[in-house]
Design a binder for these strands. Structure first.
Lengths: 245, 245
DNA sequence: ATAATAGTGTCTTTCAGACATTATGAT
DNA sequence: ATCATAATGTCTGAAAGACACTATTAT
């Protein structure tokens, strides 16, 4: 019997073992009190002229794993090196890409609007923040990307009922009111101020939110303390959920 | 400029666009009050002699999407046509498979032990239920599969604190006590009977559990009603969580 | 003073969790 | 009668949610 190394030398991947593969980040931000997602208008086949997620195939020579690949996509379009990331889902089938059986993994990323500097790619395609509740107006997206955005949005909306994810969407320095407004944009309903503040108090007590000592009157009225978020790579999880509707 | 159909005719996937791809189901069952996962002992390269998840490459000619592919894997090894399924994660990198840059998507599946008829595959490899807390004794699994099992297990243990997932692990007809014991196996701690029954009552009221009208004394003592689960493809979600420890 | 906001406190409801008491059937 | 279990009820504590009232600043 051949040894593993001998066998490996002879191994050649064939078309039965391989698929077309890409990663697609669903990058959210809040712009003008609207939840937006980053889209690119395709100039080339397939689906030329349609809007699509800013993803694409993985450069295997530059990335040693998926996470690196999707970070590269994010950096290319937004200039962000750090952001909250979460893998959402992987879809693979014979019909979403006309080129053949293909697989794509989608990630959700959260970006602070102020921190992003949009840059179009090498080929000069448009890159824009599009409000998620006006996606219909853009027509059907390329590569079934609508369904991926739906899934990412669902995950985000589910998760904010028991996590502090909106911390990654507000500016680096923010008031509790601004954090609450981020929750309200995502839930699309008002949240009682005093009820929300109890959750915020827990974040402060846990050290997730740090009081900078500064105060601001940018919200009007009595000056409010300015907080910043602790550096961390996972969300804070509350032990109970907020009502969604 | 070429039309999309002209362009498509000329398109040929090349090695830069493609990766080795596979799906790997992490199939759980409860056997002798132990949570077990289905593993296969590999006979061939790579990783021959090691235990691995019962997955592998997708037959693109037989499956039109990922879900179909993983269902085919499940059916091949267990004979199950229906089961609870959930996609867990996708990992892609240059090192987990010695054959090259590869991507794999893992699913968690829940199986009723009584319903499963293990069948070895065409190549006659061993297929066995292995207790999850004795996986160390099997040595390192093939293809970094340990980490996939960890992720699936984590998801399962997280989810049973707020869902009815163990319904998919007990026999088709069961008592509330048996359902509670399934939770206890997964949480690895006792649950107060009366506390658990409150959750069960909600499942009954919601129609998730259906009283068959029968009673059984197989648990000893006073006869207990026998329930069955409503047919459904998603978990019931409670609005509060149980303590994990 | 007024308006807009932040901060504090009160009350209700829901539910997990713990535990006591009663009911039912097998032996 | 005893034992093991199911069924029912009582109590506590925590947190969501609603809302009233006070405090602080800009105008």
């Amino acid at each position: 019997m051949k040894s593993e190394t001998e066998w490996l030398e002879e191994f050649q991947p064939n078309e039965f073992d391989t698929v077309l593969f890409s990663v697609d980040p669903v990058i959210f931000t809040i712009k003008n009190k609207q939840l937006c997602v980053l889209l690119v208008k395709r100039k080339y086949h397939p689906y030329s002229g349609r809007w699509a997620l800013p993803g694409g195939r993985v450069d295997k020579t530059k990335c040693s794993n998926l996470e690196e690949a999707v970070r590269a996509k994010l950096f290319a379009k937004t200039g962000l090196e750090q952001a909250y990331f979460e893998q959402i889902e992987t879809e693979g089938n014979s019909f979403m890409d006309p080129r053949g059986w293909s697989v794509t993994t989608t990630y959700m990323a959260l970006a602070r609007f102020d921190d992003v500097l949009l840059s179009s790619n090498e080929t000069g395609e448009d890159v824009e923040w599009q409000p998620v509740n006006k996606l219909d107006e853009l027509g059907e997206l390329a590569f079934w990307h609508n369904s991926f955005i739906d899934a990412a949005l669902q995950r985000l909306r589910d998760k904010i009922t028991y996590t502090d994810l909106p911390v990654y969407l507000v500016s680096k320095r923010f008031t509790i009111r601004q954090l609450r407004e981020a929750y309200e944009v995502l839930l699309d309903k008002p949240i009682t101020r005093q009820v929300f503040n109890k959750r915020a108090d827990k974040l402060i007590k846990e050290g997730v939110l740090i009081d900078t000592g500064d105060k601001t009157t940018e919200d009007g009225g009595r000056p409010a303390p300015v907080y910043k978020a602790k550096e961390k790579d996972s969300a804070h999880i509350f032990d109970r959920t907020m009502k969604r509707s």
